[in-house]
Amino acid sequence: MSELMHGPLFAITLTLLAYQGAMFLYTRSARAAMLHPTISGATLIALALMLLQQDYYTYYQNINWLTFLLGPATVALAVPLYRQLHLLRNMAGPLLITVTVGAIFASASALIIAWLFGANHDTLLSLTTKSITTPIAITVTQDLGGITTIAVASVILTGVVGITTISWLFNKLDIQDDRLWGFCLGLAAHAIGTSRAFERSAVAGAFSSLALCLTGAFTAIFVPFAARWFL
């Protein structure tokens, strides 16, 4: 009995059950940001492991092959990026400058604030990737030697903060152009921001996914080099 509970079959059953439960909650709540499947699914898994008194690291070893698929999933992001390419034509200059400066700003602002609050070396490394989509963030953080779970937590919390504040912030700044609105949300709040942008309009969604891909690619190229010099 006990070796069944510590094996891969149990781990994948638990994960798939949690996924079904999370999707049910998310669609039932009319896609509330706080119930995004990654958040609610992770919470369900953690609750089940605690109730069944299972060790998280054993579970994580057993589900490793599923996490391995994040590699090809990262490669797959090239397809939507290629599809959004035509959007760049008229606005290439402003969009590319904003992505370059904005992606550096997103990493640097988090690092400076964390450093002021006395974060340690590992936490700083894990925060550099907070504004990029999770599969890329995980691969970059693993290469840097940061803590994957903190990187994932920072990415998800970033997404939640982004989508809950953007309407209010951009009303104050009086930015209502769907293209600019979507682009900034995709840049700062990656995939969670992009799904929110699609709810505003198709144009906002397309610009948001373009920003998501560009920020991911740029940060993935820039951060490893920068980390080698500064950290």
Binding site: T15, T38, A42, I45, Y56, L69, L70, T134, T149
Partner: peptide
């Protein structure tokens, strides 16, 4: 192929994300 994989991203991310509760 890529669309299926991108749709499944939340599923692939749940296990690493659960680690937040066990830091």
């Amino acid at each position: 192929g890529s669309q299926r994989l991108i749709e499944l991203l939340p599923l692939l991310l749940m296990a690493p994300a659960a680690g937040v509760f066990f830091l």
